[in-house]
């Protein structure tokens, strides 16, 4: 029960962070990726803030908690191909999984299309690549 309540709280914090930072606005994300246009660096500040907190916490917590230790895996072909496919989808819609899910909170049409098709894509990855879903 404790893990479930803490996860609910973490999810609430995550959703608040995404919306307040403007990351649930697809135009803002596309403007970040549009480096030859009127570039919007907001996404860098979001990642910078998140990384600063995460990295700082890790330095304190890793002494007693193995979950915070370095867990790098070998760089595989599927990592590169998968990241590239994800990036193409991200640039196309300006939505990654987090904002897609949080935008369900306003029943946005695009999120209602994006999230179910994302689920289908994940099932296809499980069927064809044997990835866990």
């Amino acid at each position: 029960m404790r893990v479930i309540l803490l996860s609910l709280l973490a999810g609430c914090l995550f959703g608040a962070g995404l919306t307040l930072s403007g990351m649930t606005d697809p135009q803002r994300v596309v403007d970040f990726l549009d480096i030859t246009g009127d570039w919007d660096p907001t996404l860098m500040f979001v990642m910078g803030g998140a990384l600063a907190v995460f990295f700082g916490s890790r330095l304190i917590l890793r002494k007693n908690n193995p979950a915070f230790c370095n867990a790098t895996e070998p760089v595989s072909k599927s990592l590169i191909i998968g990241a590239a496919i994800f990036g193409i989808g991200w640039g196309l819609g300006g939505i990654c999984p987090g904002p897609g899910i949080s935008n369900l909170g306003a029943l946005r049409t695009e999120a209602l299309i994006f999230v179910p098709t994302m689920a289908i894509g994940m099932v296809l990855a499980r069927v064809f690549l044997g990835r866990d879903t």
């Binding site: 998968g82 819609g93 946005r108 894509g121 879903t133």
Partner: peptide, 26 residues
């Protein structure tokens, strides 16, 4: 909430498929 120009529902359906497949593959 602003939808970038030229992106209709087909674009979001394709984007969803690519993001779902790509994030699991990667």
């Amino acid at each position: 909430y602003r939808i970038p120009e030229g992106r209709g529902w087909i674009a979001y359906a394709i984007a969803g498929l690519l993001v779902g497949f790509g994030t699991r593959c990667g």
